[in-house]
């Protein structure tokens, strides 16, 4: 029991940040993201014995979280309305130039189509390879690579096409 507890605490400590961020980019809502992470870890605790390989922990947790997120839509069909763009901008005060840039980029990422954004988050934030992402999302690898290409391509275009906007932010 004690070792299970320790394992669990280590798992939470190491991965709750990444998992929360991943959840946030799935649902664009901090409190829902928190709920998702809580549900995910609770399920993880119950099934912890089935996790044999610690290296696989992250993808295991993400799989649970995606399932939880899908269940959320099964439960609440009415919640599926498009999110307000205003709600995706976080409320922390943007001070430094870096934060301004982050803020701007966050909006752009949030505006990416879901199917492009998810592999991007998994790759950049999760550090997963194309194969691993394909596995998690049940897609083939070529599709994943194409979506990653499009995601970055769109972000790059947005970046290149809005120098004025960014200038205002910077000034």
């Amino acid at each position: 029991m004690a070792t299970k507890q320790k394992r669990y605490e280590a798992l939470v400590k190491a991965l709750h940040g990444d998992l929360f961020r991943y959840a946030y980019w799935l649902c664009h809502d901090k409190s829902i993201a928190e709920d998702l992470v809580q549900e995910t870890f609770l399920r993880a605790w119950r099934a912890l014995d089935s996790l044999k390989d610690e290296k696989a922990a992250k993808s295991w947790l993400i799989t649970i979280l995606r399932r939880e997120n899908a269940r959320r839509f099964e439960r609440k069909r009415f919640d599926m309305s498009e999110y307000e763009e205003a709600s995706i901008t976080d409320t922390i005060s943007v001070g430094t130039e870096q934060e301004l840039e982050n803020h701007w980029l966050r909006e752009k990422i949030a505006q990416l189509p879901e199917e492009y954004r998810e592999p991007l988050v998994l790759q950049v934030l999760g550090g997963f390879s194309g194969e691993e992402i394909a596995d998690m999302l049940s897609l083939n690898k070529n599709t994943v690579m194409t979506r990653l290409f499009r995601a970055r391509n769109q972000l790059k275009d947005a970046l290149d096409n809005e120098p004025l906007m960014r200038g205002q932010h910077n000034g």
Partner: peptide, 16 residues
């Protein structure tokens, strides 16, 4: 790198 910074939304401090 910028995308990574942007993706790293602040994690609630009390979440752990």
């Amino acid at each position: 790198q910028d995308i990574l910074d942007a993706l790293k939304v602040p994690v609630p401090e009390d979440l752990y």
